[in-house]
Design a protein around this nucleic acid. Structure first.
Lengths: 112, 112
DNA sequence: CCAATACATAACCCTATGATTATGGGTTAA
DNA sequence: TTAACCCATAATCATAGGGTTATGTATTGG
């Protein structure tokens, strides 16, 4: 499944990932989950400084990018960071950052 | 409401970096530089599939993000990948990706 | 059953951004 | 000097995207 050397055509996963990380509010939400563990929307809303609907939309984007998981219990939705979702970022840097490949080579077995 | 500076600090560098990497065309341009070394705008334009002005604008953005360097010689501008510009990405993942911090700790001395 | 709660969606506004073609500003060459 | 060349910038357009408030859909509790 090598995407040929003709540059990344439709690397939707990588694209969604970098796009998800390209917004500061979204990164802050993800950071909160990494730091303090699983949280529901209202908890995230209080920290975020933006409205609840905006948090829901940000979380949806993070989820589609594979960076968080969602677990609905009753009327609450609990989000948790999914750190291994960052793997494609590592992969991209390992492949396209020639100077890094040596250092990154030890990280390539993270597919779980 | 003041923004909670604890989690949402104005990390302009990181923001610019992720934003620069969030576009596929821009990543392809950067990949071309990493793969084939320093190139001028016309060479990059031929590979990119977009217009020359668009390449110039993409390169400007990559440059502001610290991912490429520009060297003007006469009427040509030669761009080269600056792989250490990815350092903030590593830094961000090291800090906010708890599960990664052990593996990343060895990479933190790349500041220059 | 009814109200309150928790989250997601919808409708809307405004800015950012990717893309184009046209133009301008220097530089090389004839 | 003039013309061709290389690149950047301007003008323009369409769409994506972050933000808000309003509304909808379940779920819990009195």
């Amino acid at each position: 499944m090598m995407t040929d050397s003709r540059s990344a055509e439709r690397d939707d996963a990588t694209d969604a990932l970098f796009k998800a990380l390209s917004d500061g509010t979204r990164r802050a939400l993800l950071e909160a989950l990494v730091r303090d563990g699983e949280q529901n929307v209202q908890a995230l809303t209080q920290q975020s400084g933006v409205s609840q609907p905006m948090v829901s939309r940000h979380m949806a984007k993070l989820k589609r990018a594979g960076l968080v998981t969602a677990r609905r219990t009753g009327r609450e939705t609990w989000y948790a960071a999914r750190v291994k979702g960052l793997a494609p970022v590592i992969g991209w840097m390992a492949v396209h950052g020639a100077l890094w490949s040596q250092r990154f080579s030890a990280l390539e077995g993270l597919g779980e």
